[in-house]
Nucleic acid binder design. Structure first.
Length: 307
DNA sequence: AACTTCATCAACCGCGCCAGC
DNA sequence: TGCTGGCGCGGTTGATGAAGT
């Protein structure tokens, strides 16, 4: 069938916006709101297509946009959310107030992707590239990691499904987050755990790597509170709990819980507290997308909701 | 000083989704 | 039920300035 191009009318201007055009767009929206983007250029006296106007407004002119350098905390949030959501820039942007998806995307492509690559972490999978190196205990580690990754993927898919549902409701203003949710900019303890801890999909081991990655060395300076001393041993070891570690949730049946996912963060070597902090924070973020009063769809084993 | 390469980011493009008809 | 228009998203491009040679 072929859709008609947005800017098929000859004579519509493209390229960089002039201050005059900005002013026209700004004052029109301030006075009338944007309404139909397609109709806006004509009403505002702009020789632009509606799409171009929308982009200019959402990425540049909107008054609630924070410009300038990303803070280290914002960097961490982007990295963690990217590990969780992939290239879902708009979803990531919802967790970074005053940042646009375009800005985050650009920052990822120009800074963070390279930074992770330099650290030996695959920016797509967020796994250490050293994973391929099999060691004496490499097989058991790999097996445990696969198990862990399966749980992770399950949680991730659950989050994606929730985001799809959320996007359907997005036409109305989002409700305020429930009080228990750790919002990224609030620097709550659980968020601090989230931004300070290594992604569990990475098997980078700090105990075996004296050159602490740049980002983590920055992050570690923020460490406060109960998780502060938690980097004493290899984090990858801590996150590799097998399903056989599941105790209180042994007889848990997903099918009884409307498709909820259970993430097992317990660990055989007794160092699971940091894991729980990490996962609690991740899952708070995931579940923060859920409508108010709805049960969480992703939760930690041992913290199962009442049936 | 002139030229080349690299980094950054605003803006464009094409596609998919969805509501309305 | 199928079609169409509007919108939003993610990928990509290209202009510009900085850094390097």
């Amino acid at each position: 069938m072929g859709r008609s191009p947005c800017c098929e009318k000859v004579g519509l201007k493209k390229g960089p916006w002039t201050p005059e055009e900005d002013q026209k767009l700004l004052s029109y929206i301030e006075e009338h709101g944007h309404g139909s983007w397609r109709a806006l250029p004509g009403k505002a006296g702009l020789q632009r297509c509606g799409k171009s106007c929308r982009l200019r407004w959402t990425n540049y002119l909107r008054p609630d946009i924070k410009r300038g350098k990303f803070s280290m905390q914002e960097e961490q949030i982007i990295i963690q959310l990217h590990a969780l959501l992939g290239n879902r820039w708009s979803a990531i942007a919802t967790h970074l107030p005053k940042r646009t998806d375009n800005e985050i995307k650009n920052y990822w492509n120009t800074h963070l992707k390279k930074q992770l690559a330099k650290m030996g972490i695959d920016p797509v999978t967020h796994k250490s590239k050293n994973d391929a190196l099999a060691t004496a205990d490499g097989h058991s580690r790999s097996a445990a990691n696969l198990n862990h990754m399966a749980q992770w993927e399950s949680a991730r898919l659950e989050a994606e499904a929730r985001l799809v549902r959320e996007s359907k409701l997005r036409s109305t203003p989002p409700p305020p987050p429930p009080p228990h949710v750790a919002m990224p900019m609030a620097a709550s303890p659980s968020l601090q755990a989230l931004v300070d801890l290594e992604s569990p999909t990475s098997t980078l081991s700090f105990s075996e790597n004296n050159t602490m990655p740049q980002i983590m060395s920055k992050a570690s300076s923020w460490l406060t509170g109960p998780i502060g001393g938690g980097f004493g041993h290899g984090f990858s070891g801590m996150i590799m709990g097998g399903a056989n570690q599941r105790n209180s949730t042994e007889d848990y049946d997903d099918s009884d819980n409307a498709g909820g996912s259970c993430v097992d963060v317990e660990d055989g070597d007794g160092g699971g507290e940091e894991n729980k902090n990490y996962w609690s924070s991740i899952l708070n973020l995931v579940n923060s997308s859920s409508p108010p009063n709805s049960p969480p769809s992703v939760f930690l084993c041992g913290q199962l909701p009442e049936p």
